[in-house]
Amino acid sequence: MNIFRLAGDMTHLFSVLVLLLKIHTIKSCAGISLKTQELYALVFTTRYLDIFTDFISLYNTVMKLIFLGSSFSIVWYIRRHKIVRRSYDKDQDTFRHYFLVIPCLVLAVFINHKFTFKEVMWTFSLYLEAVAILPQLVLLQRTRNIDNLTGQYVFLLGAYRALYILNWIYRHFTEPHYVHWITWIAGVVQTLLYADFFYYYFQSWKNNEKLQLPA
């Protein structure tokens, strides 16, 4: 464990807590894409298949349970909670899941480190996580008004993977033959997808004006 990875995990944890806090306190999911949240629940499910078979550390297991629990409870809130669901904008959140799930699944079957079910599922979760934010970014561009919490949520989500890239660079130099190009490429693609959001986020923060994404 190095500082970059710890910072990345804490940023990731904080992003899901910010979202849960927003939904739980103001009982609203305005501006939040249910599609993206469902994709994240799928990412964590396929990523943590080994949660009960391979024990790595208490920290690792606890964090996996938190990410699984928070992503499914966010989906539950938006789908089932009688007040929150009213603020879900299903007419705008129309991104098709399978446009992302199918290509990632096909890619994982053909490009992986080992052709076993768990390894293919794990690789699938890496590819899917890289693109899971797309429905959310599309929704933000459609609805145009981004409230602070949603903006912070997306920013923290992008920042966590950028910190993971620093972690991979650090591990590359400190650990022998630590090269996993699939993880690196998926992580870089994921961070690049946030790049334009980061640009507009910093512009709005610097000019101290409301965050607006170009249509």
């Binding site: 995990d9 964090m63 996996k64 480190h113 996993h180």
Partner: peptide, 10 residues
Amino acid sequence: SQGQGHKDEL
């Protein structure tokens, strides 16, 4: 093994 390298990450 190859795959092992990342399994300690989240």
